[in-house]
Design a binder for these strands. Structure first.
Lengths: 241, 241, 241, 241
DNA sequence: CATGAATGAGGTTTCATTCAT
DNA sequence: GATGAATGAAACCTCATTCAT
């Protein structure tokens, strides 16, 4: 159903129609990202997408087949964008602590700069990653950041600045969570706490503290953080999932 | 269709009708929480709520007026439940460090035990807290946890186990974020990281690490977390908000 | 279904409950007149009636059985009020011309003072007098004005001030129509003519002219109004009904 | 379901689809006029319109957006029809009296021939011309009849057959009211007067009398219509508006 | 006499999608 | 390749009314 490119080897300048078509498709996709980010999957409206893309509802179906297809495409597009950004991050290879710091900043500002990414993720999680599961691009999506963190942790250990035994995935989830939550839940937090935790200034102050948290966590100088008894006691809390 | 009272022989004067009404309302509300948690606001269906509540769609409107009203009630109910739980938390008043640990565990297991709370929050944030804003109960909702944390921090400072200058709200947001993210984003994370970070065992391991993070962060033994140069360098990343 | 009075002969002071009941019924009826006048039959809402009557929707059904019953009662009440007014009109028995004038003024100001009457009539005509037909009070409703006009015309003829051969019903319809139309159609006329023909001042000027019309029409000095040819010609217009 | 074009052999290039669309729209509009005329705005039912138009309820919304939009279109259509008719009236330019007579006949038979027009007007007045106010076509709707009457009055004055000082709008309202009322209120009048004043024969007799009324009113031979005393006396009636 | 709770049926409107050039 | 017309199904919500004390 999608007009899959079947251009031959001869590199004649692309016919105008073709370029327009691609441009239309791109406009629709961009509009879809905005629409899904604003209204979620069920709340998104085809006609609003069409208007925003300066196209017609009919074209949306022409290019993407269905609402689900459009959402999948939108999701893939924001994931691809994230991965491109991740790949272009340059972490200081000689100073693991500085690299960690850079990593945190990258993740956190990416979230801050891409609210549509956060919203699409939330929506996709509401749907239990149904669309992602169907995505063919998924294979390529496995995040490069885990590899990056592993490398960084290994470097740091070797250099004696990081302690050993840190799980890169857990570290990644911690870092992401520290940055994600106050942006994702900005509106309810503002209501409940009576203060906008995602206002630019507040955010930067918060990031400084969060960075401190992460850095101390990985640092070599380990005082045993929790005495056994306390940990055991807290485990007695019901852990129903 | 409604379970008509089952009054015993003992002539308790409890007004039967009244009880049924309250029960019906409560069943609908509970069903609504489930439905909104599963499908978000726009995706929720009135008839599914009615069926689950063993009532009729009409009754939903009889008690809650509109879909928006129902959502607001559902949101209020999960917030109220959280606040009740928060109020009933007992933190060790003589051991601030232990108290902090208990606090983290409380928050994190509350999230783990109440996926519907997470989902409703996400949905409400998608709608920019529109329903919460209209809620009359909002006033009472201002979380008691900030007060609790403030107290705890003050106690810890006095006891010399916590360092000074920690903002209770920032601390709260950090703790919450650490626990929230891997539950809220469980499905996409599983896809992208290739591992279920919210599986019970993984979760407990993660919580131990996260607790370590928090504890170290508040601890008195301060090694300056970030040297100025590193911080400055990382600031050069674009921080567009 | 209506609580029909069955008071005995003994004239004990009416029990309070009874009086309240009558008062409630009266309030509901009054509220119904307003509601039906504002919104027509289909547009009228039981709950608005209840609120306006400071009663409950349930009471509306208790006293009037159905929406149709309520409308019928409302209609009867405005007709009864009109008839009471008609009966209390005093026309100068010695000066037919003056009496005619008084009659016109009475009709016209009654319409102007009772917009709810006009509206209910329009609504009832939309329904082809269905409710009026069912009304038991209809028998008493036959308007006394035709008799009054007949008398007046006879008096005037005898006195030589009125010409003969005037049909009282046609005269009544003419007078009513002259006053009714610009009130009934006030809003559309204002739009189409660009002037509020029912503003108080305009109305009084108009009534003076209308009165002149009526008076000249009945006056004895008859110049044959239309020459036969013209009348015949105008008859050629299609008179499809 | 739609009558698919019946193109003949002659290859007229008329776009088939287009024609169907227009035809469907027109059928719906016509059905709407009937439905609103019969049941008023609130009483009108979308499904009845759809059935009568041999279309679907969905199409009603496709073309007219909402019930209100459909009503507005219906109203505009009957107003446009009236205006077209008004524009095509030919009044004798050399005989003002005859022209006046023709005018009356035109207005009155138009009302008689278009009961749906009367009903829609009544409904629109119930709604205080809300729909008309929103109509873009309103600008063109300003009735040409006032101009026609002004011209006629001027001609008649010059010719000495009409007296001077007659307001064309008041005259128009009088004429319209004389014809409108007995049609608009036919059903209640029949009940109350015990005679069908809008039966064809009765109507024609009545129109002759009404024409006489109008003609005498404008005629040059002025006997002072009301002596001051009578007028003053009648003014004493309460004129509360 | 009075009333809070309940409701079946149906109203208007929207949604995602397909038809037919 | 692109598009205007069409639509079945179902969503949210309302209405007039009755139940059961």
């Amino acid at each position: 159903m999608q007009p899959k490119g079947d251009r031959t080897v001869t590199d004649t300048p692309a016919p105008k129609r073709r370029r327009d078509a691609q441009a239309t498709r791109a406009r629709i996709l961009k509009a879809a990202v905005v629409e899904f980010a604003r209204h979620g999957f069920a709340g998104a409206r085809g006609d609003r997408v069409a208007v925003r893309a300066r196209s017609s509802e009919r074209m949306v179906y022409y290019y993407f087949g269905s609402k689900g297809g459009l959402f999948r495409a939108a999701l893939e597009s924001v994931y691809t964008a994230l991965r491109d950004a991740e790949r272009s991050v340059r972490l200081d290879p000689n100073d693991p602590m500085k690299a960690l710091h850079q990593f945190c900043r990258f993740v956190w500002s990416y979230y801050a700069d891409h609210p549509e990414f956060i919203s699409l993720l939330n929506t996709e999680n509401l749907h239990q990653a149904r669309h992602l599961r169907k995505s063919g691009v998924l294979g390529e999506l496995v995040s490069p950041v885990v590899g990056m963190l592993s490398q960084m942790l290994a470097d740091g250990e070797r250099a004696g600045v990081f302690r050993r035994g840190i799980d890169p995935i857990e570290l990644y989830v911690s870092i992401a969570g520290l940055g994600y939550f106050c942006l994702s839940n900005r509106h309810t937090l503002s209501m409940v706490l009576g203060r906008d935790v995602a206002a630019p200034a507040a955010l930067h102050r918060y990031w400084d503290e969060a960075a401190r948290m992460v850095v101390q966590y990985v640092s070599a100088d380990d005082s045993p953080p929790i005495d056994g008894k306390t940990a055991a006691a807290s485990r007695l809390l019901p852990d129903r999932l």
